[in-house]
């Protein structure tokens, strides 16, 4: 199993942007705000004609219920290994030029991004399809969990399939 690459602190690695150490691999778990433009820049390629950046962010109100923030945690080594596997699969399946996945852990405030997926391909269709495919796979398979911090001080871990959680929240 590869050692996890987790950026604990902004600028914790030499020459790094806050959320994206330059020497890091294409899949990352970070605890600092995600710089979407930096993620997108990582997948740029001369032969790419379509470049898609998806940002999933914390929604402040869901079905009338206010969320103050989401707290994310992960089984980090397994999550990273699975992100790498999914990225490799997407590169082959959609014949991508580049692909990067960054998921934030810890507290993510309303409007802040919890996940960034960037995909570049010769044509737009494959780039759009890859980003959506990856997002759905991450949400369904990668061992990362969110805990909703409610207005009333309540905390609720989201485990899809719970009677209480209903439809998926956030992201």
């Amino acid at each position: 199993m590869p050692a996890p690459r987790v950026a604990d602190q902004p600028g914790s690695e030499p020459g790094a942007t806050p959320s994206l150490p330059t020497e890091a691999g294409p899949c990352l778990l970070v605890r600092a705000p995600i710089d979407g433009a930096a993620v997108l820049a990582r997948v740029s390629a001369a032969d790419a004609g379509g470049n898609v950046l998806f940002l999933g962010s914390t929604r402040g109100v869901t079905d009338g219920v206010t969320t103050l923030s989401l707290d994310y945690e992960a089984h980090e080594p397994l999550a990273l290994a699975m992100l790498e596997e999914l990225r490799s699969a997407a590169m082959a399946r959609f014949a991508l030029c580049g692909c990067a996945i960054v998921h934030r852990l810890g507290r993510v405030g309303v409007g802040e991004a919890s996940i960034a997926i960037a995909a570049s391909a010769p044509h737009r269709r494959e780039a759009f399809a890859a980003a959506e495919w990856l997002l759905e796979r991450v949400k369904a398979e990668v061992p990362i969990w969110k805990c909703e911090q409610g207005e009333d001080g309540g905390r609720t871990w989201v485990h899809p399939g719970d009677m209480r959680s209903g439809a998926e929240r956030g992201g």
């Binding site: 998921h103 919890s114 949400k139 061992p143 956030g170």
Partner: peptide
């Protein structure tokens, strides 16, 4: 060994 409850990342 780890227990992995239904995931909710993204």
């Amino acid at each position: 060994v780890a227990i992995i409850p239904p995931v909710s990342g993204g």
